[in-house]
Simulated assay, not measured.
Amino acid sequence: MKTLGHFGKVLAIAPHPDDEVLGCGGTLARLVDEGADVTIAIATKGNPPAFLAEQVERVMQETQKAHHILGVRDTRQMGLPAAALDTLPAAQTNSAFAELIGDIAPDTLLLPFIGDIHLDHQIVFLAAMVAARPRNNDAPCQILAYETLSETNWFAAPTTPAFVPNVFVDISATLGRKLDAFAAFESQVRPFPEERSIEALKALATLRGSAVHARAAEAFMLVRQIVRSA
């Protein structure tokens, strides 16, 4: 099997805790296994009264456990307001992501899909793309959008952007860790046939894998790729 060495330093941005596991957890685990430098940034945090303090603390603990299972040691909490990114001035949101991306200087950026139904997902994508503009050689060379069960497929495609993957990462060896990492989010897991279930997540990985003759895969849409000279 070929390695993911061309990903270089990787930054995966999740609008909310567990999005990164649902969308690219298997890929992140594989990258860690191959020795890649991987960072996960959680964009938002729940604030009262919409979110109870004990609920927020529980999810943060679940996040730590999930990332430990994946093997990711660098987790950044951006602390932007969950389910309320649209209440912030665009300049403030863009600045937060510019600081994050400037600090990490990733080669590969993994983002939620612009066509997700949750507005937080859309804003995170747009703000990260503003921050990742190729104004210098430190800009990310590869930007991929991942799919999130219960978000990516619930909008109104083709009226809205449709997720049509053109990059597939074989996660046959790390699917188990992806599922275990999602199971760590006990407050978020739902019983099948709800989409946020272990069974549905495994089924999607099997489906994406079968599209490229693999036992399991994660699918992405390539947003931009820059092949620089040596």
Rank of each mutant, 00 (worst) to 15 (best):
T174F: 01
F155H: 14
D18W: 01
A156T: 12
E186H: 06
F97K: 10
C24E: 11
R133H: 03
V38S: 04
I42M: 06
L28C: 09
T27S: 14
L111Q: 12
G23M: 02
I198M: 11
P48D: 05
L31Y: 10
A43T: 07
A53M: 12
L175A: 08
L100N: 01
A43F: 01
A83V: 13
R73M: 12
T93W: 05
I143A: 10
W154D: 10
A131W: 07
V10S: 04
A139L: 09
L88R: 09
A214K: 14
A82D: 14
I114T: 08
D180T: 11
R215H: 11
V223H: 09
T44Y: 04
C141I: 13
T174A: 07
F168D: 00
F220W: 01
A162R: 14
P112T: 09
K45Y: 06
P89K: 12
A43Q: 02
F163T: 04
R196P: 00
F155C: 02
G23Q: 00
L204K: 11
A53C: 08
G23L: 06
G176Q: 15
S229V: 14
A157G: 10
F7H: 13
V212W: 07
P106C: 09
L179T: 04
V10P: 00
E218D: 00
F155K: 11
Q55G: 14
L109F: 07
A132N: 06
V212C: 12
V223W: 03
A83D: 13
T3K: 11
V38W: 08
A14H: 01
H121V: 05
A230F: 11
V59G: 06
G102N: 05
R135G: 11
T160Q: 10
P112G: 07
T87G: 02
D138L: 15
A43Y: 01
G71R: 01
V38P: 05
G102H: 05
Q92K: 15
A203K: 15
L88A: 09
Y146E: 04
M129V: 03
E54D: 15
A83Y: 11
R224G: 02
A83N: 12
N94E: 15
L52T: 07
H6W: 12
P49Y: 03
T87W: 02
W154S: 12
I104N: 08
L149A: 10
T27D: 03
S95H: 15
A230R: 13
P112R: 14
L207K: 12
S187K: 02
S150N: 06
H67G: 03
A66H: 00
A184K: 04
A217M: 08
I198E: 07
A82N: 11
R228D: 05
C24N: 10
G26C: 00
P89C: 10
D116S: 08
V32W: 03
R30K: 15
A145F: 05
H121C: 06
I42A: 06
T3F: 04
D86R: 14
I143V: 15
S187D: 06
I226R: 14
E218I: 04
A83H: 12
P193E: 01
I69E: 07
A200E: 13
T108R: 12
G35Y: 05
E194C: 11
G115H: 03
